[in-house]
């Protein structure tokens, strides 16, 4: 057990060190949701009226509505960024060091995911802090309750990133991830508009949004920020997380996954 925790700590510390040296990565990860919050939300505030839906007990501004979705956006982009760094590590050969360790491979990959999640969670809190400074505040305890939701969401999306990285053969293919994974996942979710809004334009779109695990992660964060628990969102996020973790392990299995097929 001590050996596992030693490896976990080393992997997290390495990711933190790498992150601390990439200030621009921290800033860009914050700028992206802030641009949405300041520019997009201001533009759409008038167009997108919101009714009172749980967990809200009163009318809210559009800026307030999209804050949990933008936290999800940070987790999503960082999860994919981790997948990019794994593809880079593999091309550079440093992934071999990890995969030839005698510790269980599932633990090493899980540690990688947790390391990426830790960075994402820090960014989410920085974003929530800036949002609060702009007057978009949540109940005080919501900032505490949201921590496990952010960790769970981060692990789920990180696992998706690791799974994808095992199927991406080269860095150049990452543009495909942007087009076919990040954008559809984000836009076909409850991050920017509630389900009932979506249903007004297309029932099929609403169903896709309701099926999208990212929607459930966003709802888990939204409810937690308002000191409420959303069991369905938790269940859905956990289920998706387990499936993605399974896929990630399969992808990096020396006997079955792409590591072997690529040769």
């Amino acid at each position: 057990m001590r050996a596992l925790l030693t490896a976990l700590w080393a992997i997290v510390a390495r990711e933190a060190l790498r992150f601390s040296r990439q200030r621009s990565r921290f800033v860009s990860a914050l700028v992206r949701p802030l641009v949405w919050l300041v520019v997009f939300a201001a533009g759409f505030r008038a167009a997108l009226g919101l009714s009172i839906i749980p967990p809200y007990q009163t009318y809210i501004t559009y800026e307030t509505y999209i804050v949990p979705g933008l936290c999800g956006m940070i987790l999503l982009f960082n999860g994919m960024q981790s997948s990019l760094s794994l593809v880079y590590d593999r091309e550079m050969g440093s992934m071999r060091l990890l995969l030839t360790s005698p510790l269980p491979r599932w633990w090493l990959l899980f540690s990688k995911i947790l390391a990426g999640t830790a960075v994402s969670v820090l960014q989410c809190y920085a974003f929530l802090g800036i949002a609060a400074a702009m007057g978009i505040t949540m109940p005080l305890m919501g900032y505490v309750y949201v921590l496990p939701a952010l960790i769970l969401g981060g692990v789920m999306l990180g696992a998706l990133g690791v799974a994808l990285s095992s199927f991406i053969s080269q860095m150049e293919n990452f543009a495909g991830v942007m087009n076919f994974v990040i954008f559809p996942t984000f836009f076909m979710s409850t991050a920017l508009y509630p389900l009932w809004r979506m249903a007004e334009s297309s029932v099929l779109l609403r169903d896709i949004c309701a099926f999208n695990p990212f929607s459930h992660t966003v709802e888990l964060i939204r409810f937690a920020l308002y000191e409420q628990f959303n069991g369905m969102a938790l269940l859905w996020t956990m289920l998706a997380g387990m499936i993605f973790l399974g896929l990630a392990l399969w992808g990096y299995d020396p006997g079955r996954g792409l590591m072997r097929r690529r040769g």
């Binding site: 050996a3 596992l4 490896a7 060091l97």
Partner: peptide
């Protein structure tokens, strides 16, 4: 020792070894 270098160029020699030791459960 792989054909392609697997050192983390941004870490010192000692920190590279420390990271590797941790991957073997040594601290």
């Amino acid at each position: 020792v792989f054909q392609q270098s697997t050192l983390d160029l941004d870490l010192s020699v000692r920190r590279n070894l420390r990271y590797f030791a941790a991957l073997h459960g040594l601290a």
